[in-house]
């Protein structure tokens, strides 16, 4: 009786996870574990849900419980890897994902997780390899293609990112990640109205999703006369590798100092002062604008609170 109840609850939890009802899935998995505390898969799935809900200590407890019961479980290693990553233990996360991949070489989940990890660390080459491996292992999973679209976006190629995301949405119109990536790509390409449409679509599908709200906020900032300029400048400066960003910022600073010195030496002290003043105003604006944007985003996030049993 208990086993059959636990199986039904476990199936329900999987369904709830697929539909994004994470709080419901947590309750179902607690139900499973109340009946069968030695269920490693339930502990591992619960760990994944808890990472999503940012309850990292509980998530780590669950992932380790899953591994203690079943040390050869790829899902448990995957869950522990996600906990390590959330706790900023990048090397440990990488090792856990690799272990998961070794234990279940036919699953696309470990290379997908590794690809996402490398992408967030701006390690573009290994990220690309892992994403392609995930696509080869499961060409039917739209989330792998969404990650590929994100890879193109971070690789400063919004055109290709948009093309891949559109292809994903052609197959699965409600794929959340693809919608968000397409919105960001449209924004980078200057097509603000299209970006807005995708942001609204993403928020409508997942009203509490932070990435969708961030996109919506970014579109609003881009349309705002005060923040629009900062948004364009920062997108240009940050769009590329870290080295490019550093060279651009330091180059701008040194260029201004050089011009200011030259103007002073050539007998134009007022012009030199004007250049320094204009640079200072730009710096103040570039410090204030992101703070205003973050405040807008926080306000937007605070407006959305779903009941845990939604």
């Amino acid at each position: 009786m208990n086993t059959s109840n636990a199986s039904s609850l476990f199936a329900l939890a999987r369904q709830q996870m697929q539909q994004g009802h994470i709080d419901g899935a947590i309750q179902s998995l607690i139900g499973v574990l109340s009946l069968e505390v030695q269920n490693a898969a339930a502990h591992a799935l619960l760990a994944l849900c808890l990472v999503d809900r940012k309850r990292l200590a509980a998530a780590e407890h669950e992932a380790r419980a899953a591994l203690a019961i079943e040390p050869q479980s790829a899902l448990a290693h995957l869950a522990l890897g996600k906990v390590h990553y959330a706790r900023r233990r990048i090397q440990a996360a990488e090792a856990s994902f690799r272990e998961a991949a070794a234990l279940d070489p036919q699953s696309d989940m470990p290379p997908h997780a590794l690809g996402a990890l490398y992408l967030n660390q701006r390690r573009m080459a290994p990220a690309g390899e892992c994403i392609n491996t995930a696509i080869e292992l499961d060409p039917g999973d739209p989330s792998n293609f969404s990650l590929l679209a994100l890879w193109h976006l971070r690789n400063n190629d919004p055109e290709r990112a948009a093309a891949v995301a559109r292809e994903v949405l052609g197959q699965s119109p409600d794929e959340h990640e693809a919608l968000v990536v397409l919105g960001w790509a449209e924004l980078r390409l200057g097509r603000v109205d299209a970006a807005y449409e995708h942001a609204v679509w993403a928020v409508r599908n997942a009203p509490a999703a932070e990435d969708a709200l961030e996109l919506l906020c970014a579109v609003k900032a881009r349309r705002n006369p005060l923040l629009g300029l900062w948004f364009r400048v920062s997108a240009f400066i940050a769009g590329g590798s870290g080295t490019r960003t550093i060279l651009l910022l330091v180059g701008m600073f040194l260029g201004v100092r050089l011009v200011s010195l030259l103007l002073g030496d050539l007998g134009y002290p007022s012009a030199a002062q004007f250049v320094s003043g204009a640079w200072l105003a730009f710096c103040v604006y570039s410090w204030v604008a992101p703070t205003i944007f973050q405040r807008m985003l926080r306000k937007e996030l605070e407006q959305v609170r779903l009941r845990p049993d939604f």
Partner: peptide
């Protein structure tokens, strides 16, 4: 008994 999650 309901399974308990540890507090953060």
């Amino acid at each position: 008994a309901t399974y308990q999650l540890p507090d953060e």
